[in-house]
């Protein structure tokens, strides 16, 4: 935070803040002002939430900065990979084919 915020106007924070607001209101709009089915609304809100979480990691939580910046990215990518493989993989394997019936 120090080495960037001190030298210039915190432009990335403002963009991050505005984008977060935008994503939040978009979610509210989809939920309250549209007539999409419940499932579709959940999918849209969920996607917006994941987008916003990712956005905040970069804009506010400085994952790319500091001496461990690269390692942080690799860690998170690997963790996401593992979580997807284990959860989605298990569900896929156990619910496809005649084994599930």
């Amino acid at each position: 935070m120090e080495h960037k915020a001190n030298s210039k106007y915190p432009i990335s924070h403002i963009i991050g803040f505005l984008l977060s607001l935008l994503l939040t209101f978009a979610a509210v709009f989809v939920a309250l002002k549209t007539r999409l089915s419940f499932t579709i609304v959940m999918w849209i809100i969920g996607s917006l939430a994941v987008l916003q979480a990712g956005l905040q990691l970069f804009m506010f939580m400085h994952v790319t900065e500091g001496e461990d910046g690269k390692a942080n990215i690799i860690n998170m990518a690997y963790a996401a990979f593992m979580a997807i493989v284990i959860v989605v993989g298990s569900i896929w394997v156990l619910t496809s084919g005649h084994a599930a019936h």
């Binding site: 896929w92 394997v93 156990l94 496809s96 084919g97 005649h98 084994a99």
Partner: peptide
């Protein structure tokens, strides 16, 4: 899954 191909998970899996 190659340890239990014969479980019958279906051709795609």
């Amino acid at each position: 899954v190659h340890h239990f191909f014969t479980m019958g998970a279906g051709p795609a899996v």
